[in-house]
Nucleic acid binder design. Structure first.
Lengths: 336, 336
DNA sequence: TTGAAAGCGCTAACAC
DNA sequence: GTGTTAGCGCTTTCAA
């Protein structure tokens, strides 16, 4: 691979001129510019990014910390990130962390070792060591989707509490008063907010919260299936199941159908996310649509703003949700 | 951020000793090593990767070219890549190319500009310019999943022809003799191979290939839905639909159910890939299981082997598939 | 408008 | 075992 010196020699100019031709062409006379461009062609010259980056101290790399890329929702988020990153000349370093804090810290450290400029964390965990926190300066980080409580950085989030309340109200309006909630991992603020929203809606109509109707899941199809199986063993069964994501809702539906229940006649089921499959499930799933790609796009442009000093406060961006009513939820049918 | 010189000064040694302490600790006396390590601690020193990489000429970055990350199958492949990359100290630069050749070339050029060491292409397209091809040297590239015909690089693939034949034979054995095939994008070798396998199986039992039963799709749920809708308009309907991926099969099932057909009594449906959802669809989908994560793992370790000169031939790795029979396929029921 | 030259932070060849 | 030193390829003052 040829370097800048070869090109300079070929064009009969200095290396500085070659560099300028590429970076600020207007500062070079048309004649020289032409000669240099020709020489670049001839040499098949590609500027060495490594060297340029070392010099400038900018890598144009962004680390993305995602718990599981195999999750359809996150895949869409990343898709959105990619769009903006590509547009703005950044590349995404993907890290599928399996929610492992050590791995997350490892990748976050790439910022300190100049392998990346910033990180986007899709989980509620701060991968930067406390000691390095500077009160007056933001970490080069943006937190999206599952956000931290103590925001030390800009965040992009949904009003999960309001969204869960909206779905719960929808089910209440259909006449359900025993509504189960299949939640996600217990420690997640996201799970906690959705539970809060669910309780808000119950409170509004004076229904007591029943601990039994709160079942733990892990956002997988399987855990939704198991949660539904468990709920069916209850003495006082629910008449509707609200799952904190679509995968669990689809798993739950599978279980219910296997047990011979009809959806929504015998049991209503609702999800969260509105993944592709939701519309094509049987019956099509009532859910909360989240602007997944928009999460990614916003997170990346926010991070770039932080890196370029255009954002200096830990701002919070709240993205809108939409209640999408399909056929998996329906009016309460009195049990025979 | 402190640098190697600060640490050297702090420890009262030369920069070379600091570097050695980190790279070949055994070549430094225990006493000095200790002093250096202490100084590193004290300075909060993180070696600058950019500098190390410029020096060594290795970035330890691998570009991944994926058509659509929002595709569940690819997401799993990437998941596997990530595992091995992390183990071997490489990072993945993700590029969601939407199958755009220009974008693919752009990212592949990162190798020439020293922003990455190699590329993994998940689509049948060579993103490197021909001119740069050297007969005796491999491109730093590995092609996986959808592979090129003219292999200029190592590939990781499935025997798509055999897999499609196996599925077709399964349907034939159930008594079906009008089997539709919903294919992927026409130009893909993968699509072509699967069609060939389908025809192989038909030939074996002397059934003529019927062009009408070959429907185009694009691997999306929607296209599967539409393909099924189209097939139902045929004068001589098929009794089984074999889709080239699970998403299309699920879309097709949705359409069939909407039209009041029972699966598999009125129509058998089969997919390809065995994504998570396949097991949880209604009915559970008969499909070809592909070792998605293994594709990713193999591709990355193969690429690293190429980069380190351990592989010099465009070897072909063929991964095994498995016919997974669930309830979406069943014996032919004579139409009334 | 162009060139000379100093370094970004590190590694490695060579000397002691 | 350890230090000295010459770069890796580029950008960017500073001078001309």
């Amino acid at each position: 691979m040829s370097n800048i010196r070869v090109v300079a020699e070929l064009a009969g100019v200095s290396v500085a001129t070659v560099s300028r031709t590429l970076k600020q062409p207007e500062s070079v006379s048309p004649k020289t510019r032409h000669r240099v461009l020709d020489a670049i062609q001839q040499a098949g010259y590609q500027p060495n990014q490594l060297a340029a980056r070392l010099r400038s101290g900018k890598t144009h790399n962004l680390v993305v910390l995602v718990p599981t890329i195999a999750n359809v929702f996150f895949a869409r988020v990343i898709s959105g990130m990619q769009q903006v990153a590509h547009e703005k000349g950044f590349t995404l370093l993907l890290s599928n962390t399996q929610a492992d804090e050590q791995t997350e810290c490892h990748y976050a450290r790439m910022v300190e070792s100049a392998a990346a400029d910033g990180v986007i964390q899709l989980r509620a965990f701060n991968p930067f060591k406390r000691e390095h926190v500077n009160e007056h300066q933001l970490h080069p980080m943006v937190n999206a989707c599952e956000v931290l409580d103590e925001v030390a950085c800009p965040t992009v989030m949904l009003d999960n509490r309001a969204a869960a309340a909206a779905m719960t109200r929808h089910l209440l309006a259909l006449g359900h008063n025993r509504i189960a909630l299949v939640k996600g991992p217990a420690r997640s603020p996201l799970t906690r907010d959705r539970i809060a929203g669910y309780r808000d809606a119950l409170n509004e109509v004076g229904i007591n919260f029943d601990e039994q109707l709160l079942v733990a899941g892990d956002f997988s199809l399987k855990s939704g299936y198991e949660a539904a199986a468990h709920l069916l063993t209850l003495a006082e069964r629910p008449t509707a199941i609200f799952c904190e994501n679509d995968e669990m809702a689809m798993g739950a539906m599978q279980c219910l159908k296997k047990m011979g229940l009809r959806i929504p006649e015998d049991m209503s089921v609702a999800g969260f996310d509105d993944i592709n499959f939701a519309e094509y499930s049987d019956p099509p799933l009532t859910t909360i649509a989240q602007p997944a790609e928009e999460f990614g796009r916003t997170a990346v442009s926010l991070l770039i703003d932080v890196l370029q000093g255009r954002v200096t406060k830990a701002a919070k961006v709240i993205l809108p949700f939409e209640l999408v009513i399909r056929n998996s939820t329906g009016p309460l049918h009195k049990q025979p």
